[in-house]
């Protein structure tokens, strides 16, 4: 193999790093998206037997949005293996204990249970907020597009914009503004 071909091989199979902002995103729909990048399924060279998966950094996993009343209804099951060792944890409880866990489990469950799954999971880096180590951020070369637009809360706008916002209606005279 000539040195040119060797470098060509490195370039083709280079692992690249993606970043995904999980704020306001459904973790179960996002995991289907993240999975494709983790396993390298978006690449034209993809084959289940070649090792072409990428790294994905997920930020703001604390800000994920579960649909409907799933925070109250979704239950995570764990069994220690001892008699009476079964526990059922609600999604909101689990999220309080570890804000990365729901995202991690969603991605883990979206993939088939084969020998590669645990190694693929090692390439997923989840952070509860935007504090990502610098050496991780330096590798990132692509941003994964979010599934839904991020809404902006009123208290996130600067005060000037709020005051200058066009008046749509006239309040009635006896209307009380608190």
């Amino acid at each position: 193999m000539s040195s040119l071909k060797r470098v060509q091989q490195w370039a083709t199979f280079a692992r690249i790093w993606h970043i995904y902002n999980a704020a306001w995103q459904n973790p179960f729909h996002s995991s289907e998206l993240i999975k494709k990048y983790l396993m390298g399924m978006y690449k034209p060279i993809y084959h289940p037997m070649n090792d072409c998966g990428d790294h994905v950094i997920v930020i703001n996993s604390k800000e994920i949005a579960l649909p409907g009343d799933e925070w109250k209804k979704r239950v995570y099951f764990h069994h220690t293996g001892y008699p009476g060792g079964a526990t059922w944890t609600l999604a909101w409880e689990l999220h309080q204990k570890d804000p990365t866990m729901i995202m991690k489990k969603a991605v883990y469950n979206s993939m088939d249970g084969n020998l590669q799954r645990r190694y693929t999971m090692q390439r997923l880096h989840i952070f509860p907020d935007e504090n990502v180590p610098k050496e991780f951020l330096g590798n990132v070369t692509n941003e994964i597009k979010q599934l839904r637009p991020m809404p902006k809360r009123l208290d996130c706008y600067p005060e000037k914009d709020v005051k200058e916002f066009p008046k749509v209606i006239d309040y009635p005279e006896d209307y009380v503004i608190r």
């Binding site: 060509q8 370039a11 083709t12 280079a14 995904y20 692509n142 941003e143 597009k145």
Partner: peptide, 28 residues
């Protein structure tokens, strides 16, 4: 034409972008 690499057919504006980037994260 040469084997594919992760950097072929890439949007050139990604070269100068800093991450995380709110504009790039917006849905298409």
């Amino acid at each position: 034409q040469g084997p594919w690499t992760p950097f072929t057919f890439r949007d050139p504006k990604l070269n100068l972008a800093s991450f995380p980037n709110e504009e790039l994260a917006k849905p298409q």
